[in-house]
Simulated scan of single mutants.
Amino acid sequence: MRTSDFNFESPLDLLAKFPSKERDESKLMVIHRKSKKIEHKFFKDLHQYFNEGDTIILNNTKVFPARLFGNKEKTEAKIEVFLLRELDSKDRTWDVLVDPARKVRVGNKLNFGYGLSGEVIDNTTSRGRILQLNFNGTHKELIEKIKKIGKTPLPKYINRNPEKEDKYRYQTVYAKKEGSVAAPTAGLHFSKHLIKKLEIKGVNLVEVTLHLGLGSFLPVEVEDISKHKMDSEKCHINIKSCKIINDTIKNKNKVCAVGTSSMRAIESSVSSNKNLNPFLGWTNKFIFPPYDFSIANSMITNFHMPKSTLLMMVVAFAGFELIMNAYKIAIKKKYRFYSYGDSMLIL
């Protein structure tokens, strides 16, 4: 398939700039792959589709306040710095994106205030830089300072300063392991009340960790999708989670991946007999059609942007015609798209 196959008229008026009033009151489209039936529910109805012995896989990554605003030394030009990942804690070097990039060159010094500054020591891409941070304190104190002055990294399309509510709502209720620069958005719909309902029914809620970068959210720029390269993201799957998931597969119960990040994590560590192995490392797994999924037989995902790797994975899981038809219905019925938008359950 070609990248252009995944293009559609982007519903700009349906891009969700704010979360739903309550997490689990967002809309949920339920898609049955075998019958092609489509139902329209609310996310709080999710527990109706799972039974005792089923397993739901959650990505417990936690969003890091990765957006900093500083000023260039001498010119005082305002520069936005997006911290992608720490490269070396000893040297305090970070892989970052800068905006406007044309104003930031090697050797430039940036002042963020509160005793924190940095120097650009290398270029990586047109917008990418290596930034060495300067701070008079320990590494732990440096991270705490970044958390204090950094802003919640809302997607650019929201185009507003993060509000108090965003610090809570752009984070899943089960977030634990800090390291993402974007939220695993399918998980934002889970409320503590819904989780309790699932637990009472005997549904296993299993956690994995995949720290999201920005690469997954960028449109694919090559027409031959097989030539697209994903950015690497750090992933951790422990032995306990593997056992529960593998037992669920053995018992022929539902295994549901919450979000494309959970799906990418589990598909990155599959044994030859299609069981899940423990994993600690980096994955650049790119899932696009055709693809034979090994672990999950259902998934929850938001409505994604045209030509994105996220949409390609969903199509690989449920089929091109079914998903593209579902998107047409979603637009017609005013489902909300993207990070704070509504979701679909694919069975």
Rank of each mutant, 00 (worst) to 15 (best):
D5M: 03
P11E: 04
R23V: 02
L28N: 05
V30I: 07
V30R: 06
S35T: 06
K37M: 04
F42E: 00
F42D: 00
D45N: 04
G53H: 00
P65Q: 01
P65S: 00
K78Q: 07
L87M: 13
D91G: 07
D91T: 09
A101W: 13
K103L: 10
G107A: 11
L110V: 01
N111K: 06
S117P: 06
E119D: 05
S126C: 11
R127A: 09
R129E: 11
N134R: 14
L142G: 05
K145Q: 08
T152K: 15
P153N: 07
P155Y: 14
Y174S: 02
K176E: 12
E178P: 02
S180I: 07
S191F: 06
K201F: 06
N204Y: 01
L205Y: 04
V206Q: 09
V206R: 09
H211F: 01
V220K: 00
E223P: 08
I225F: 06
S226V: 10
E233I: 12
S241V: 05
I244V: 13
I244P: 07
N246T: 10
D247N: 12
T248P: 05
N251E: 11
N253I: 03
G259Q: 04
E267F: 12
S269P: 10
V270W: 15
V270P: 14
S272G: 09
N275W: 12
I295W: 10
T301C: 09
T309L: 15
M313F: 15
V315H: 05
A316P: 15
A318G: 15
G319K: 14
F320A: 11
S343T: 09
